[in-house]
Every structure is written in C-alpha cells, then in structure tokens.
C-alpha cells in the first residue's frame, strides 16, 4: 500500500477531506523512507549531518535545473502533430499546413518568439 502525504495538486487542500494527524502520522510512522534512513544510520552508513547536507544539495540542484529550464525555448509547434502516429497521415499533414499558414498570417498573435523554430 502507498500513501500520498502531499496534497493532490497545488489547487488541492487535502485537509478538507482528511485529518492533519493522519498525514503527520504517515509522515513519521511506518514511512519507508524514514525507516530506510534509520536502518542505514544503524549501520553507520548515513548520518544526520549527511542528511542535512544532502537535502540542501538536492534543493540547490533542483533550483538550478528550474532556472536553466526556464531559459530554454518551448518546443517547436510542429511537435503538436508528430508522435500521434509513427508517421503523419494526410489529415495531420493538411492540418499542420493550415496552422503554419495561420501563424505566418498572424505572427504577433501567438507569441511565437518563445517557441523553437523548426530549423533551429
């Protein structure tokens, strides 16, 4: 069995349908991550000091990755039509051409500068 200790999403307040104590109990008791950590500590393979440093490093790595990702352009719009099938059937080829024409006719409307161009 698994138990979700976080909210379902950023728009979910899970305490509307479950007590806070239930969640905090699952965070501390029988939590497999905690149990494994305690097991490693009992074998002197891990320590509180390493835990704190590791968490700090993870947070920094994630923030770096977020910052880097934010600077990357969004994928090319043509990706919308690919990978529906192994090859694009005629209807998708035709629809892609229609959208290409629309974007050429209204370049400012779609904010295209944040999307990768097909030839980039």
């Amino acid at each position: 069995m698994t138990y979700r200790v976080g909210h379902h999403s950023t728009s979910d307040d899970s305490f509307a349908y479950r007590p806070k104590k239930e969640v905090s109990d699952w965070t501390t008791h029988d939590n497999p991550i905690n149990r494994f950590r305690k097991y490693l500590e009992s074998l002197n393979l891990w320590s509180e000091h390493q835990e704190v440093a590791f968490k700090k490093q993870c947070r920094a790595d994630i923030l770096d990755a977020l910052n880097a990702a934010e600077k990357v352009k969004k994928p090319a719009v043509s990706n919308m039509f690919t990978d529906v099938y192994d090859e694009m059937p005629w209807n998708l080829v035709e629809q892609k051409e229609k959208l290409d024409l629309l974007m050429r006719r209204h370049p400012d409307h779609f904010g295209l500068e944040v999307y990768t161009k097909d030839d980039e």
């Binding site: 990706n79 039509f81 998708l92 629809q95």
Partner: peptide
C-alpha cells in the same frame, strides 16, 4: 480541434481559437 491528443504546451495552437474562427 486538430486530430491530435489535447496538448499541454500547444493548447493555444490546438483550440479553434478566435483568430482561426475569424480567418
């Protein structure tokens, strides 16, 4: 909508938007 699954990052290109209807 185009004949694709409903996309996340391309939603505004997918939907039958105002500009497409106008055209």
């Amino acid at each position: 909508g185009w004949d694709t699954p409903f996309p996340l990052v391309f939603e505004k290109f997918y939907v039958p938007s105002m500009i497409r209807c106008l055209d």
